[in-house]
């Protein structure tokens, strides 16, 4: 058991290092902007004096390392700087919308994860039947659709004339739970359709990969029922890949919301990011990218740790 904790600690340390390197990458983004950052903010018409003043105000005259360390220090205190577009605090902008994005991702995950695991197991169980072929073709189709296509079709189908659900999720600041569930249903459904297909296919593949193993044949030769063979013998050994797929898709949910948020005018981080990219509002883009990257790294980290813990060879040493 001891060396498993060692492995996990190592993985955690690696996660911290990754976050650190990612922060450097994101910080360097400003440095790579062609031309002068202060000039960029003020526009071509600015006088050299005002540019110089702003440079000093932003600390651009300091050496690179000093600026990075103070930037990192600010972030750790929760200060992500101010938007170039409207001067608002980036932390506040993000804070307002982060919750919305997380709720939407959670909403979709709560439907997608159980649904896709069940479908994946059923497809593996009834492999090569009509159900399996149909589920596979449908899954492949829905993976291939751009999110905005799925979103518009759903709007057309469920929200258009005489529709049941609203096509805009532009709700007031504090919706009740039922109102949230109702208003965010279409975006959540869009995301669900996109990730369920992928997770289902991977779950099925992970299980079917194992079905050729001698120990699966052994279980069948012991007279075990097909369901028991899948659930008791294949599934525990397919956990690691399945956990990874779930993590990958949850990460995708958090970042993949960008397009969906734009379609449904959903007030989340994705919208904010897209608006800021068009406006080249670097501090906001950096802030949002940092949040997304952080969530992504954390999810992958959790998945790796869980996958390690699901492997009896690692947990129970020799």
């Amino acid at each position: 058991m001891a060396h498993v904790w060692g492995m996990i600690l190592k993985r955690l340390a690696l996660g911290v290092v990754t976050l650190f390197v990612v922060s450097i990458l994101i910080f360097m983004a400003t440095e790579l902007l062609p031309g002068d950052f202060a000039q960029e903010i003020l526009g071509q018409s600015a006088t050299p004096e005002t540019v110089k003043a702003l440079r000093e105000q932003l600390g651009l005259d300091q050496p690179l390392l000093t600026r990075y360390l103070s930037w990192l220090g600010d972030i750790l205190r929760g200060d992500l700087g101010n938007s170039l577009a409207n001067g608002n605090s980036v932390s506040e902008l993000i804070g307002k919308r982060l919750g919305n994005t997380l709720y939407l991702a959670l909403y979709a995950a709560a439907i997608a994860v159980p649904l896709s695991l069940t479908l994946g197991i059923l497809a593996a169980l009834y492999r090569n039947t009509f159900f399996d072929r149909f589920a596979n073709a449908a899954a492949l189709t829905s993976i291939s659709f751009p999110e905005f296509f799925v979103a518009y079709i759903l709007i057309f189908w469920l929200a258009g004339a005489g529709g049941i659900f609203p096509s805009m999720s532009n709700f007031r600041t504090d919706p009740t739970l039922s109102e949230f569930l109702y208003r965010a249903f279409l975006p959540a459904l869009t995301l669900t359709l996109v990730v369920t297909a992928h997770m289902m296919r991977m779950t099925r593949a992970a299980i079917i990969n194992l079905l050729a193993s001698p120990y699966i044949e052994m279980a069948r030769l012991k007279g075990m029922s097909p369901i028991r063979v899948i659930v008791k013998h294949a599934l525990p050994n397919a956990l690691a890949p399945i956990i990874n797929v779930i993590a990958l898709n949850l990460a995708y949910l958090i970042t993949g919301v960008v397009v969906v948020e734009v379609v449904f005018v959903y007030p989340g981080l994705g919208q904010l990011m897209v608006d800021s990219v068009s406006a080249r509002d670097m501090p906001v883009v950096q802030g949002v990218a940092l949040v997304f990257a952080g969530a992504y790294v954390l999810l992958n980290l959790t998945a790796d740790v869980l996958a390690t813990l699901s492997n009896p060879r690692l947990v129970h040493g020799r």
Partner: peptide
């Protein structure tokens, strides 16, 4: 590659496009 892949693809693309312009 590990580091580059630690940032989600679409977000990374948006970040880079902010820098180099669309």
């Amino acid at each position: 590659v590990d580091v580059l892949m630690a940032i989600p693809a679409l977000i990374f693309a948006l970040l880079l496009l902010t820098i180099v312009g669309t």
